[in-house]
């Protein structure tokens, strides 16, 4: 399709976004402002991630798009189609084969490699936003490294629920400097933030890009007596039997029956292909 420039955005815009990405990589965790463009999808559907992907894509890349771990949900399907139409790149559902992975709310179970880039869609990039509404003030807090307020939130969690109840978008400190919102990934994924691949974060509505370079130290905030815990539902996957992957809970009927399945569909599928079976695997295979 040649009515569009490669990957939809014009070259000047991609250049501007690439500059922001490079700055983000140079200052890990720092939110770089950029002139976010109007995209042909509503805010909240991944306009930031799409722009970062568009600026990162090369014709020889293979793209994978996931939404909550799944390749087949509306958001993932429409963004994948968008790039099939506007960039003509190859797409895949297999984590292994992808060179760029755009994701919403999950990190794939498979370990990412140095030649891969993962792009996160970020709704609200500012981890301090709900504690301090003034942007001028949060910027100052970042520049002066005043992060006591972040712990006030965790304190409130413990005093109200007896444990740190923040389960997603769990704040992290990157490279001993910036406190960063890792986008709404479950805190189960937080330990994976120290990885071999490049991680880019795009927030379209809020016009911010930030990044974590490979092998960068990423620490989840916690208290000495209430250490960080990566939690998941205490079940094995009902389809593939995996007991160390992040699970979705699916309500089966009105009688209260439920099943737990891997949220990473590609991971689950490849395990089933390799012969692993969960509690409900057989009836489902039919």
């Amino acid at each position: 399709m040649n009515e569009y420039n490669f990957a939809y955005l014009d070259e000047q815009t991609k250049r501007m976004i690439r500059r922001a990405i490079l700055k983000g990589l140079a200052v890990p965790g720092y939110q770089v402002p950029f002139a976010s463009r109007e995209m042909p999808m509503p805010y909240g559907w991944g306009t930031g991630g799409v722009q970062v992907s568009a600026a990162t894509l090369m014709p020889e890349d293979t793209l994978k798009v996931i939404d909550q771990g799944a390749d087949d949900t509306t958001n993932a399907v429409s963004i994948r189609k968008f790039f099939e139409n506007t960039a003509g790149v190859e797409t895949t559902e297999e984590t292994e084969k992808a060179t760029i992975i755009q994701t919403r709310h999950r990190i794939p179970e498979a370990k990412l490699r140095e030649d891969q880039i993962i792009v996160y869609q970020v709704p609200i990039p500012e981890p301090l936003r709900f504690l301090e509404p003034r942007e001028t003030e949060t910027r100052k807090m970042h520049s002066l490294e005043e992060y006591g307020l972040m712990h006030v939130k965790l304190y409130e969690d413990i005093s109200q629920h007896g444990a740190i109840s923040t389960a997603y978008a769990y704040p992290v400190k990157v490279s001993d400097r910036y406190v960063m919102d890792p986008s709404p990934i479950p805190k189960f994924d937080n330990p994976k933030l120290e990885m071999d691949a490049i991680q880019l974060f795009g927030a379209g509505r809020e016009q911010r890009i930030y990044a974590v370079p490979p092998h960068t130290k990423v620490v989840s905030l916690d208290f000495e007596d209430y250490p960080f815990e990566a939690t998941k539902a205490a079940h094995p996957c009902d389809l593939c039997g995996s007991d160390d992957s992040y699970l979705d809970e699916v309500i089966m009927d009105d009688a209260g029956n439920r099943m737990f399945v891997c949220s990473d569909t590609d991971f689950c599928r490849s395990r089933r292909k390799a012969g692993h079976k969960g509690r409900l695997a057989e009836e489902n295979a039919a």
Partner: peptide
């Protein structure tokens, strides 16, 4: 919007106290 305990604790956490108890 923060509890009384959190209000008092904020300055402690701001100067680096990291023990909830």
């Amino acid at each position: 919007s923060v509890s009384a305990g959190g209000n008092i604790g904020e300055r402690l956490m701001a100067v680096g106290d990291r023990h909830y108890g």
